[in-house]
Amino acid sequence: MAVRSREKARGNPDVRHGSASLRQALQVLVLKLVQYTLLIAGAVVFAAPFLWMVVASLQSQANMFRWPPSWIPIDPSLNNYINFLSGANIGRWFFNSAYVALSVTFLQLFFNSLAAYTYAKRRFPGRDFLFLLGLGTMMIPGMVTLIPSYIILGNMPLFGGNDIMGQGGHGWLDSYWGLIAPGIVSTFGIFLLRQYMKSIPDELLDAARIDGASHFRIYWRIILPLSVPALAAHAIFTFQFVWEDFFWPLIIISDPDLYTVPLGLTLFVVKNRTAWDQLMAGSVLVTLPVVLVFLVFQRQFVQGIALTGMK
């Protein structure tokens, strides 16, 4: 009925035709009903495992194993968290993850935006060639460069006990360098920001150039402030990606003092296959920062994906 009266208010001529309009209103109603039913059912299925993790992390192992399972925590407590935090060296893991993820995020924001500005707004010989070369290699699967990257890192001259020829030590393997340095620029990030910066009007830059501003000043004072939405989306993407990445740390890190949260948790899982109570608490803890970032910056996040999907 509500639908029908709204249609009427809009002045839809069909609605005035008695039974036909009723049938149409009914159709709309049924469609809405189907739509909501599907969405609610889907959302329940998708959110349930996540909810279960939180519920399980709040109860003792005995209550976790109850059959039938209970969706409301029985005797909720934070004991699992306390046990997990006191057992594992998780403070160190959190520091490592935060240090690496924030470093990579800020370095990428700077270097990617600098390159993106150069590609978007400047003319110089070789520009299109370099840009297309970068774009073309984006399609190469990461697995192809994984093995050489590992060997290159291990042979980085003058680091980690290596001599000038890159022999004798472990190079950038097992170090913050190895976790941060290969990720300080990304073709994907440059592309994302360049698309956005191309839409900034040239007149703004020309005016500044006539006033004698240097390229870096134009970038810093005009381009960056105008690119905040794209930069925000880029920052969130990068932070999430680096925070959750466990493959790269798994391959290059063996020193427990350098574990990131996902790597530490993975090895904790391997070692304590039955400590479900602590595993659930650890899983909540590793997910929490990203969920918080997402909830706070949700709008930029969705916008950021729109930026990548539109090309």
Partner: peptide
């Protein structure tokens, strides 16, 4: 949208545990 997106931001390790 948030509910459907939650699994994406769940860490792969946490997803495996769940």
């Amino acid at each position: 949208r948030t509910l459907f997106y939650l699994p994406v931001i769940t860490s792969a390790v946490a997803a495996a545990v769940i």
